[in-house]
């Protein structure tokens, strides 16, 4: 199908982008890699009057270190995230999960910022951002502000970003010595996650000292499996992990769709949490 007509601007600077967005208000859509927006346009599920192509704004792409924080530009493509040595070293969970997003060609164009700002609950990266305790930095007419991932995802496809704000970078605390695992459950390789579990585990003295668990597609937003995280602290054997994982679906609101019922999703969340945590505990 054919996208509807729209006006198009390609600002050269961040300031210009923010100004254009502020002028256009709700009628504008931000285009980064386009891998979420273009299918929506082609199916005529979105009718923006203006598309603001931020893809060439300098300085928003790439990964650097700021003290003990990893700073990933919002325009960094999935492909570059997967292959980046800093990400692999300090945020292996992100690299692993990103490698499961869509397919190689989509990963060449799609961006980390775009995925987070699109906030699809079936998308893999929002739950990972939660688990990693990422901070999302936005720039708007009022300047820069930093939003913790836990406050960023407001509702289905809704974020804390104002229409005139642009996500510019993702700040991830560096974690060394944490085990990680992204367990993605889907029916075919390129399809969205039916359920995904992003697990980070820190071990000490032969026990799980701390676990952080993000859940994909267990509600209108990505969620933390808080009850399971608490129960996991101190777990020393697979039996304890299994018992703790039993509470992984607590507080979730999984949807019903053609591929799964809420009950099945809840079941998967428990099984996958157990598997992710056991795997993460082994990779630490």
């Amino acid at each position: 199908m054919i996208p509807p007509a729209f006006d198009y601007v390609r600002p050269d600077t961040l300031e210009e982008a923010v100004r254009v967005l502020a002028e256009a208000g709700e009628e504008a859509k931000v285009l980064a890699g386009g891998q979420s927006l273009l299918p929506l346009l082609r199916l005529r599920l979105a009718f923006p009057e203006l598309v603001v192509d931020v893809g060439r704004i300098p300085g928003l792409r790439g990964v650097r270190e700021d003290g003990d924080t990893l700073v990933i530009g919002a325009l960094t493509t999935h492909h570059d995230v997967v292959h980046d040595p800093l990400v692999r070293r300090y945020a292996g969970l992100l690299a692993q999960a990103t490698e499961t997003v869509a397919d190689p060609a989509v990963r060449h164009r799609g961006t980390l910022g775009g995925s987070l700002a699109h906030a699809d609950p079936a998308g893999d990266l929002p739950a990972v951002a939660l688990a990693l305790d990422a901070e999302l930095v936005a720039v708007g007419p009022g300047g820069r502000r930093s939003v913790p991932a836990g406050e960023f995802f407001a509702d289905y496809l809704q974020t804390a970003l104002a229409p005139d704000e642009l996500l510019v970078e993702v700040r991830v605390p560096e974690r060394e010595g944490w085990g990680f695992r992204y367990e993605k459950f889907h029916r075919v390789s390129q399809s969205w996650a039916m359920v995904g579990v992003a697990a980070l585990v820190r071990r000490a003295d032969g026990r799980i000292a701390e676990a952080r668990i993000g859940l994909t597609n267990m509600g209108p937003t990505p969620l933390r499996a808080t009850a399971a995280e608490q129960a996991l602290a101190g777990a020393a054997d697979p039996g304890a992990v299994a018992r703790a994982a039993g509470s992984a679906a607590e507080g979730t609101r999984p949807s019903r769709d053609a591929s799964a019922s809420p009950e099945y999703r809840a079941h998967l969340a428990r099984v996958l949490t157990e598997r992710a945590v056991l795997a993460a505990a082994g990779t630490g």
Partner: peptide
């Protein structure tokens, strides 16, 4: 038709 696009109707790939 709920499985109305190729994103919903699952044609397997080489990986599947």
């Amino acid at each position: 038709l709920v499985s109305g696009t190729m994103a919903d109707y699952l044609v397997p790939s080489a990986a599947d």
